[in-house]
Simulated assay, not measured.
Amino acid sequence: MARWFGKSGKSGDSDASGPAGRAGAAGQAEDDPLNTADALRLAYGRTGDQGLLRRAVLAAETARGQYPADDPHHASALSALCMLYRLRWERERDPALLERSLTYGRQAVDASPPGDPELGRHMSSLATSLQEAFDRGGRRQDIDEAIALYRSCLDILPAGHPEHAGQESNLANSLLRRAQKFPDAATLDEALTHARAALDDTPQKDPMYPVRAVNLGGVLLALVQTGQLRHAAEAQRMYEEALRRFPRSHPARGQVQGAVERIRYLRRTLGI
């Protein structure tokens, strides 16, 4: 079975990327619509061409109709649509697109047959869309559902699995979102545990290492903002480490630099 959309989305889709168009996996042909959708989605990521994104949606819709409901590829097609409509939402900001993403994501999880190795990815994709819904509407139920899904991903992924660290990072980010909207010390402490574990489990040469350093820095900074000033120095180190590793063209550099400057100012002001 093609492990489509496995690793090249944003952090929420695990922070992660994989080759498109794996031909021949479990008998999938090169012209399989799932492979086509994946290739178009990757091309959209490189170019930003909305026409490619809309063609990817059409290919995924074709796959959804092509595979019967009991075929794991059917669930993968639904999960693809979840991600693609979320990408359209991020670009177009039409709430109907986000709602469609959520609908397809839930259908993908429900349609996964017992033992489906892709279930964790389907749950993660739905959880990422739920985070978007939470960011938009602030409903506690959305972030709580996302957190539950990420926890379920970790339950079915062994510690040595290549996507385990990404899911820990995703869970940490969801917990941080929740704690920032609904302050709770235990939630923030759990976010710190998972963010630290995600970084510890990521090789330093992995391209996701600086992203996960930023994620850990964000949790540490949130703890500083609750009065736990002992975390300020480590938060600064995490952001500075990310800056050293990010390429100059990385879109997060400006925000990370701003965070470093704020922490430096805070530490100078408070003498910490």
Rank of each mutant, 00 (worst) to 15 (best):
A165I: 04
M208R: 12
P183E: 00
P203I: 07
G217C: 00
E168V: 04
A148C: 05
A159E: 15
D206F: 10
P158Y: 07
R136G: 03
E163H: 10
A179W: 08
L149K: 11
L175F: 05
L130D: 13
K181Y: 10
T193M: 11
L154S: 02
L175C: 00
A213W: 00
H164I: 04
E168L: 13
E118N: 07
I156M: 13
E145Q: 14
L149T: 09
M208T: 06
F182R: 02
T193K: 14
F134E: 06
H231M: 05
Y150T: 09
E145R: 12
G218D: 12
H122G: 02
K181E: 08
Q228D: 14
T226P: 08
R121F: 12
S169W: 01
A197G: 02
L175R: 00
A213M: 13
F182L: 11
D189T: 08
A197N: 09
E145N: 03
T202V: 08
L154T: 07
S152C: 08
V219H: 01
S129M: 09
A197S: 14
P183D: 03
P207F: 07
S125F: 11
A159Y: 07
Y150D: 08
P203G: 03
Q180L: 13
D135G: 12
G166E: 07
L223H: 10
L154D: 02
E190S: 03
Y209I: 06
L130A: 05
L216N: 12
L223N: 07
D155F: 01
L216D: 07
T128L: 07
L175W: 00
R177T: 10
I147V: 13
L188Q: 12
A213H: 03
L126N: 06
L119W: 05
D206H: 15
S125I: 10
L157E: 09
N170K: 07
P162D: 09
T128F: 14
E145I: 03
G120P: 05
A127V: 11
G217Y: 07
E168T: 01
D201M: 13
Y209E: 06
Q141H: 10
R136F: 08
C153A: 06
E190V: 09
L175I: 00
A191K: 06
I156R: 14
Q141K: 12
M123T: 02
E190H: 13
V224A: 04
D155Q: 11
H122R: 15
G227I: 09
P183F: 01
L216H: 08
H161N: 14
A222N: 09
G218I: 04
Q228N: 11
A165G: 11
R151M: 04
S125G: 04
L220E: 04
S174V: 05
R196T: 15
S129G: 15
H164R: 14
A195N: 03
V211A: 07
I147K: 01
I147R: 02
A198E: 10
E132D: 15
F134Q: 09
M123C: 06
S169P: 11
Q180Y: 00
G120V: 09
I147P: 08
M208K: 10
